[in-house]
């Protein structure tokens, strides 16, 4: 019958749109990252790695405040060595965060950075950062974790101070699961 063929075609199309929209839901994940990267929203830092230093712009001063945040349940002692750094755009600055694992077990942590105002995120260039990799500390162990950064000379005039915050997450459970499954595979 005519109507039945029409129905079948319509249903096929509608089901296909549903599948497409289900995919779109997942596509929102990379789209969101791309969008944040393009617009520099979200305070995510995308400029990393070596940089050519051209000499500082001494006419401007920028205050960089360093913050350390413990994610819930994270027992480590964690904080910046220097809470406030005065720098010039284009100047390479080195500082560090210290961390101590006061517990009686080996733990793995991951620091997630964020910059405020978000507008400044794309001008903060990290040459080296402890947040690039996971930190493993044995029971009672302490470590100084280096941070090397340059503020881009193109930083807009009205930004005179910015905040770089690190949130420390305990990822020991995830890592131990991954490690044990790796061991199983190598056996």
């Amino acid at each position: 019958m005519n109507v039945q063929a029409d129905n079948r075609r319509l249903v096929r199309r509608l089901v296909f749109s549903c599948v497409l929209m289900f995919g779109f839901g997942f596509a929102l994940v990379p789209l969101y990252d791309v969008f944040c990267e393009v617009t520099g929203l979200n305070g995510k830092i995308t400029n990393t790695g070596p940089v050519a230093v051209e000499g500082p712009d001494l006419s401007r001063q920028v205050r960089v405040r360093l913050l350390a945040v413990h994610n819930e349940g994270m027992p480590w002692e964690f904080g910046p060595v220097d809470g406030l750094i005065e720098t010039h755009p284009g100047e390479m600055k080195q500082t560090a965060f210290h961390a101590t694992n006061p517990t009686g077990r080996r733990m793995v942590a991951q620091a997630i950075p964020s910059v405020a105002p978000a507008e400044a995120a794309e001008y903060l260039h990290k040459v080296n950062c402890f947040c690039f990799e996971q930190q493993t500390l044995l029971a009672g162990e302490s470590v100084q974790m280096p941070l090397l950064f340059v503020i881009d000379k193109k930083l807009p005039e009205h930004i005179r101070s910015l905040t770089l915050s690190y949130t420390l997450f305990d990822i020991s459970p995830e890592v131990s699961v991954a490690e044990s499954s790796e061991k199983e595979q190598s056996l």
Binding site: S17, C18, L20, M21, F22, F24, G25, L28
Partner: peptide
């Protein structure tokens, strides 16, 4: 409904 219920399904799947 066709446009957004699959997105809800996506988010709960995530």
């Amino acid at each position: 409904l066709i446009a957004v219920m699959p997105v809800l399904a996506g988010v709960v799947t995530m």
